[in-house]
């Protein structure tokens, strides 16, 4: 029952809010509260308002480390992302799509828009705003019309065209709307800000996996954010020069902010030469082609392991 699932989410959000670490609600000025958050409610029922702040000064697309983008890779592993989908994808911008900066890398998770085109167009309410403001998908209700994908201006939605390949344990798990596991054929998936992990006090996988500490996740309600290494007030992050949201002009009101940069902070810790060598190659040297979705391999290996006792039994039977 999707309704009860939604009630559950509200409950989870409220529980997380009660456990808040910092009592002082530093604020994010100008952030519009949306209709389904409970702004008027008492402090004990305060609901998180998750945002991400991605510091492009620290992001070199993992080119300097000679590895594929670790945010994407970590997400793939932790969320059992079906083959080929990149819920958070790192793009190389040659001319700079954010104003006033040169070439840079840009990790793009789902923007969790407040005026979300995908939520607006869904015919069955399968994609919806959680109380914390994130956009989730109920894959048990989705009819697979893909209008949300057509509507998303950030290409951040992915479709399970065929039967998704995932490890057998994942396939047989009961469906959970918060983790989108197991993936369901003929439905849409996307980054969910790891809402489940955050409700439990953890961090989104991409934040944990980023070797440069470039991705901050924060709560506008508390006014704090962390990249897993240090805490920062939302106020200080938002006062960095030129903080902006991608395609702000569309009016989608994303919950992902970018601090402009071109990986300059990442380059200083050792990978400078490789990083700059990367600029020359197409795609800025990003190693997205080395990303892995090991599910097919794992499934095959498990099948082999299962086959062994059967084979030996058969052999014993022969003897």
């Amino acid at each position: 029952m999707p309704i009860s699932r939604r009630d559950l989410l509200k409950g989870a959000g409220a529980a997380a809010a009660t456990l808040s670490l910092l009592p002082d609600p530093a604020l994010a000025h100008g952030e519009e509260m949306e209709g389904d958050t409970h702004g008027a409610e008492s402090e004990s029922q305060r609901v998180r308002r998750w945002v991400m702040v991605i510091d492009l000064r620290a992001c070199d697309g993992c080119v300097g480390l000679g590895v594929p983008p670790q945010c994407t890779q970590g997400c793939n592993w932790a969320r059992f992302v079906p083959e080929g989908q990149q819920w958070i994808e790192v793009y190389a911008l040659e001319q700079g799509h954010l104003e006033g900066i040169g070439s840079h890398f840009m990790p793009a998770p789902c923007m969790q828009c407040q005026n979300a085109p995908c939520v607006n167009v869904c015919p069955v309410g399968a994609t919806f705003h959680a109380p914390e403001g994130t956009v989730l998908i109920d894959q048990e209700r989705c009819i697979g019309c893909r209008l949300c994908m057509a509507a998303c201006p950030y290409d951040r939605r992915f479709f399970n065209w065929g039967e998704p390949v995932q490890p057998p344990q994942v396939r047989s798990a009961p469906y959970d709307v918060l983790t989108q596991v197991p993936a369901i054929e003929g439905t849409v998936m996307k980054c969910d800000f790891c809402t489940d992990r955050m409700s439990a006090g953890g961090l989104p996988t991409c934040v944990e996996m980023c070797p440069r500490g470039a991705i901050y996740v924060g709560d506008l309600e508390e006014g704090i954010a962390t990249n897993g290494r240090r805490m920062a007030s939302m106020e200080s992050l938002m006062s960095e020069n030129g903080v902006g949201r991608y395609k702000e002009e569309l009016g989608t009101e994303p919950r992902v902010y970018y601090i402009p940069g071109h990986g300059q902070d990442a380059a200083t810790d050792g990978g400078a030469s490789e990083a700059f060598a990367g600029w020359e190659s197409p795609g800025g040297g990003l190693m997205k082609d080395r990303l892995e979705w090991p599910w097919r391999r794992i499934t095959d290996e498990l099948a082999k392991l299962e086959a062994i006792p059967a084979a030996s039994e058969a052999a014993m039977g022969d003897g």
Binding site: N120, V121, C122, P123, V124, G125, A126, R141, C142, I143, G144, C145, R146, L147, F159, N160, W161, E185, G186, T187, V188
Partner: peptide, 17 residues
């Protein structure tokens, strides 16, 4: 993608879509 859930459009239909 899910023709089997076609009737969701009636059951859960949302006017904004």
């Amino acid at each position: 993608g899910r023709p089997d859930r076609m009737l969701n459009v009636i059951e859960y239909g949302r006017w904004p879509s």
